[in-house]
């Protein structure tokens, strides 16, 4: 079975159709593999080559990757949930019941979205602390750290705006408690509070506002900043690896105990 499957796969990948879609074509050479990255609109933001050391699990714990992974899960489940959701009172709550009792696997979909959202907040925080403790924020990566802080705030806002959408007691009072804090801002506090909720208390207007923020504005902002984040990883010299760590599998790499801030690796 195995060789035959491989042969079929090989024939498929050699076909004209395949080539018309994947420009890199078939092949295991460095060139082909570089082209697989460079010729794809989704992957070309990544460098074609990376240092072997940064693939070690210990280097990053893959926290950034995992945060992106939860974001992707949230986008997919979120779009599916949008098919069933009306941002109006009290239909929003009825939709939760429908998701739970009528929609096929609707309960699972909502569960996955909710738990992934919590996981994303948790992972974003973990990512931040991990980056800090490894010193990866140091120049030349300082701006990317700032982008990361912005992404953390967007993540929190995404989670917070999504919290209201089920329109249950939990949602209503969590948002009420949270939004009341904004009234404490001197002078313009009340204005901010009103602007945020579209009224003086959490109501149908607030639900609509939070819905638009949650489903359109904040995800777009997140995608934008994620793109910048990834682009800057590449432009700032790839994922940061402490010089003090031995390069496993890279036998001849020498070790410098000097300050790594001055390290500069030119990339294509």
């Amino acid at each position: 079975m195995q060789p035959r499957t491989e042969a079929t796969l090989g024939r498929l990948m050699a076909s004209r159709l395949w080539k018309s879609i994947f420009r890199s074509g078939r092949g295991t050479s460095t060139l082909h593999r570089s082209m697989a990255i460079q010729q794809s609109v989704f992957l070309h933001i990544l460098p074609a080559k990376v240092r072997r050391r940064m693939l070690n699990f210990d280097a990053t714990w893959y926290l950034g990757t995992l945060t992106l992974g939860t974001f992707l899960v949230l986008v997919i489940t979120g779009i599916l949930l949008m098919f069933y959701y009306h941002p109006s009172v009290p239909q929003a709550y009825a939709d939760m019941k429908d998701l739970r009792y009528v929609v096929s696997s609707g309960l699972f979909l909502r569960n996955l979205h909710r738990w992934s959202a919590h996981a994303m907040v948790l992972l974003a925080f973990a990512h931040m602390f991990r980056v800090f403790y490894r010193g990866a924020y140091r120049p030349p990566r300082e701006f990317n750290w700032v982008v990361g802080v912005i992404l953390l705030l967007i993540t929190l806002l995404l989670s917070y705006t999504g919290y209201l959408l089920p329109w249950d007691q939990l949602a209503f009072w969590a948002i009420t408690v949270g939004s009341n804090i904004s009234s404490a801002v001197p002078i313009v506090g009340q204005k901010i509070h009103f602007l945020m909720l579209g009224g003086n208390q959490v109501n149908a207007n607030a639900l609509l506002r939070f819905y638009v923020l949650h489903c359109v504005i904040l995800p777009l902002a997140a995608v934008l900043f994620i793109a910048v984040h990834f682009w800057r990883i590449r432009k700032d010299g790839g994922l940061y690896v402490q010089q003090s760590e031995p390069a496993k599998g890279a036998g001849e790499a020498r070790v410098s105990t000097e300050d790594s801030a001055q390290e500069a690796v030119a990339k294509p």
């Binding site: 593999r33 990376v50 240092r51 390069a247």
Partner: peptide
């Protein structure tokens, strides 16, 4: 102060590892 060190192709070395990590999480 620093030397070139071993580099690997992003595809498949990095991408598969990332995909593995994400899959385990999912």
């Amino acid at each position: 102060r620093s030397v070139d060190e071993e580099q690997v192709q992003t595809y498949p070395e990095a991408l598969f590892r990332a995909a593995l990590a994400v899959q385990v999480l999912v």
